[in-house]
């Protein structure tokens, strides 16, 4: 079993969320493919970990399998997910329901779809309290108004009677965040929480998430493909590619001195590096089909450094430095070059 990718030097004790060797298989009509292959990381309370990667790299799949929301076609086939010390893989429905909310919670990207269109938002926000704390309708409604105030919704008492479609995108995302933190979870997963929002609202939402995180001492897993969000808001980063972790470590170190060619290529394709009049830099090629992931290094087809060895053996995720790890045969050379 692979070591947890992030032995954090600052926090002590067990991480709030520990993922080890997580494997998820997708059963498609054309055969079974592995969407997530041996992903591992850990997040301590009060820390923010970013899962970074392009579309289809398995980051959302990782989040959904942690939350236990996989489609019938997807299946966790190995590894372990521990939240506050409790193993989630293989846990029964009833036990998982007890943990869902007070221990682990998730914020979705599409806030309009994640709210019931025919229920006033106040009643939806009250639902976690009614289910887990057994509060009466009135008490739960009162709690919902408190939450709405906390996440910055003006006139919460009146707005509690409105329906989701009567809110703006940013307000809807606030509602969703309110619902996710309602029961003070230890671990909050945010699946691209700001992707559908414009930049100013994005900043507000991220600030809200960070405030709530410090206030309630949560471990935050931020799933995103936005390098700027990662750089600004995350403590640690896990870079994923084709269902594998290719590099992990503190954001500052990983972004200043990437030890994997994919991380470097991603950082190089930020438009700031562009030269006027020249094409925008981009990572050449596209990620492999999940059904045709090569046997060697997953990134070999797009890697400028690839040689015979990369085609033969897949590099393991090895520690490089105190708190970092990378999965590349050339990580040493990358550091020097």
């Amino acid at each position: 079993m692979k070591p947890s990718a992030l032995p954090s030097p600052t926090a002590t004790g067990r991480p709030a969320l520990e993922v080890e060797g997580l494997r998820v298989d997708l059963h498609t009509p054309s055969g079974t493919v592995r969407a997530v292959d041996g992903v591992g990381f850990g997040v301590h309370k009060g820390r923010t970990l970013a899962l970074l990667g392009e579309s289809g790299c398995g980051k959302s799949m990782t989040a959904l399998s942690i939350a236990g929301l996989l489609d019938p076609v997807a299946e966790v086939t190995g590894g372990s997910v521990r939240v506050s010390g409790t193993e989630l893989v293989g846990l029964g429905r009833a036990e998982r329901r007890k943990l869902a909310g007070p221990v682990l919670s998730i914020v979705f990207q599409d806030a309009l779809a994640a709210l019931n269109p025919v229920q006033p938002v106040g009643r939806q926000l009250a639902e976690p309290f009614r289910i887990h704390r057994g509060l009466s309708r009135r008490q739960a409604a009162e709690k919902a108004v408190e939450l709405m105030t906390r996440v910055g919704i003006p006139e919460p008492r009146l707005r509690a009677r409105s329906y989701p479609h009567q809110f703006s995108g940013g307000m809807r995302q606030r509602l969703l965040i309110a619902m996710a933190v309602a029961l003070d979870p230890d671990v909050l997963i945010a699946d691209e929480p700001t992707t559908a929002l414009d930049v100013t609202v994005q900043a507000q939402i991220m600030r809200l998430l960070r405030d709530l995180q410090t206030e309630r001492d949560m471990a935050l897993v931020l799933i995103t493909h936005d390098l700027a969000v990662v750089a600004r808001h995350a403590d640690d980063v896990v870079v994923m590619y084709a269902g594998n972790v290719v590099e992990a470590g503190p954001v500052r170190e990983v972004f200043s001195r990437p030890r994997h060619p994919y991380t470097r290529a991603l950082l190089d394709s930020v438009p700031e590096h562009a030269v006027r009049g020249r094409p925008l830099p981009a990572v050449p090629g596209s990620p492999p089909e999940l059904s045709a992931v090569p046997s060697g290094c997953v990134f070999q087809a797009r890697c400028p450094l690839a040689d015979d060895r990369c085609a033969r053996e897949r590099p393991a995720l090895e520690p490089v430095g105190a708190s970092r790890s990378a999965a590349c045969h050339f990580s040493e050379e990358l550091d020097r070059g």
Partner: peptide, 26 residues
Amino acid sequence: SRLFVDAARTFGTPASAIIRRHLLPI
């Protein structure tokens, strides 16, 4: 398969409550 049903499941809503509060009204 709608997201708000998933969202309800993420905070541990039992099936009977999902049927009553989320499916039935629609």
